[in-house]
Design a protein around this nucleic acid. Sequence first.
RNA 1: GACCCCAUCGUCUAACCAGGUUAGGACACCGGCCUUUCACGCCGUUAACGCGGGUUCAAAUCCCGCUGGGGUCACCA
Length: 663
Amino acid sequence: MTSSGRTTSGGCTRTKCGSRSCCRRAGRFWSIACWRAARIRPRSCGGGCEPRGWSYTRCARRRRRGTSSSMTSSRWPRSNWKRCWRRLRRRRRTRGWIRRSGRSCATRRPILAPRERFCQPLWPRMPGQSGDDMPIPVTHKPVRVRVAPSPTGDPHVGTAYIGLFNLAFARFHGGQFVLRIEDTDQKRSTRHSEEAIYKSLRWAGLQWDEGPDIGGAFGPYRQSERSEIYREHTQLLLDSGDAYRCFCTAERMDKVREEQRARKQTARYDGFCRHLSAQESEARSLTEPHVIRLKFPQDGETSVPDALRGAVVYDNGQIDDQVLMKSDGLPTYHLANVVDDHLMAITHVIRAEEWLNSTPKHLALYAAFGWEPPVFAHMPLLRNADKSKISKRKNPTSLEYYQRAGILPEALLNFLGLMGYSRKDAVGQDVEKFTLDEFIADLDLTRISLGGPVFDLQKLDWLNGLYLRAMTPEQLADRVTAFQREGDRHAAVGQLVQERVTSLGDYFDHAGTFFRGAVEYGLHARYFIVGAGSRKKTAVRLTRLESQQFFERCTASLEEQAVWTPEFIEARLRVICEEAKVAVGDGFMAVRVACLGRPTSPPLFESLHVLGRALTLSRLRHASGLLADANFLQRALADVETELAAARAALLSPNPTPEASHA
RNA sequence: GACCCCAUCGUCUAACCAGGUUAGGACACCGGCCUUUCACGCCGUUAACGCGGGUUCAAAUCCCGCUGGGGUCACCA
């Protein structure tokens, strides 16, 4: 027997058909055909296709590890869950539990009333339960979904993405869409950021039915106001023995993790305080700072039912005893999220894929409380061009950026609705442009494709242009006026530009940069090299890489605080110039060109203030990105030089003689 | 490193579940038409089933393996 499982020595042992295919079953080698014939039985897809709790994933992993020798015949998978999953899905689809995918969904029957659909976990399996005896219950709870951003930093485009699918799902089923603010991280959460989330989501057109600002029957919707609830629930877990106090210090934890990594293991808590007696734990808790951890089962495995992926199986031995309550008495995301989702009667948790790996812990919490878990659907992550998780360093991620850059909210939502998802019309043609209502009307989460979609700004621009061109001139004028007046920017820009204008039309020349996303630098890019444009002979000129660092420091420093005032900006920039040992004038010039596009502008700090945090930061990041390219100036120069050369050639060429022209 | 997820043009995706398509559409690119210019619009070109095996008359599609990419591994969310 080889551990790779690719070849066999004796061929199929079941029917002696001589096939040497790769399948191994019951400890012997069977041909694939035999294996299939034996496997596909009515029982195997009756709702539980893993009779012994073994899954395809598990087996593949074992095989990779080369531990096949430890595998006894009876433990090899009876069936292939993926195939069964598809069958099951098909069956449910025909019963109307899942909406039929594709264009024909509007006409295909039977489909139940919206609220009856998709109301149950597709794989309602808890840790320790087998799938065999699990019926598929159908309840009629009203659909309730939520988006739960954390008010740390700028409102994120990912929040809008997840929010869009949640909102659409709620509307599709006639349910409720809840906004919950997850501000349990006291150090990083700010009220300012919370307000920004409201503003941006409203701008995008994602209006919630219940939330901190508008209330609702399941409030409060701000986690910092629910501390007492979490405390009570933690006590329940402590009493039932599903959680324990942990007195380990941060230093000890670091050391443990380091050792585990050195041994190439998954870094996880070693259970040092897990077995403290109740009395000792109680006594020490009065004097020592401590956290409360979930007592996660150490044996067996947990199957996470994901509506988009099927069952995802985890080995319990890999999973940490998660901290539920921090030493400051506030809960971590994991506890707060489970408690709130239950108390707020959330039926479907549609969230980003980064949460998939912590879902076993959440399921364990539901089990410990004796609650029924919601349906989980983990959406793919938005990506940068290099396929990594979308980040502000490589993409504008702030919703405020898109608002300021003149992207229409309907275009943004349309674009987000194209990420990992596609729509077709009645004839089967792809539909690229659609309204939110159209998106909601035939939403089908099972159509989501799971590869992480790259956030392509070019396509967003195209889509935005499509919307703008579809307007009547009057509508366009209205939108432009509204855009200019947004946040009183119009007046602020006017004030800055006023002393520089010579005519009304001149205004637009100066003001344009405040109403754009990206800026074309052309030859002005030379100012990115800090000090390069200085007229002083003694000026300090930074190298390209030093200049890049200079911009990175500017970005980091300005990003730190949410307060966006000219004074604050000036103070920060002065410090950076001082640290870089460049003349303030030269440093400010580099920032001016990067942020405003040219070396002549209204006063820098006031301009940046009016330009806004999102645009300023994104332009600074863009500049430092350009500087990372060694030939960035060459590229800027190339076009100009070509044109100049042509013009020069034309100017300097001798006038044609009369003879020549006659000839 | 361990675990988990994922894999079709450069990008977003369709076809996959239910095997038979000339692998379709959109953005971008390139070329052409239109146009005083640019843009819009119209037309066209280039461009993909990651690799290896298996099943089958037939594999992008079903199965296995490999490879690659991503995510997670916090008293962050």
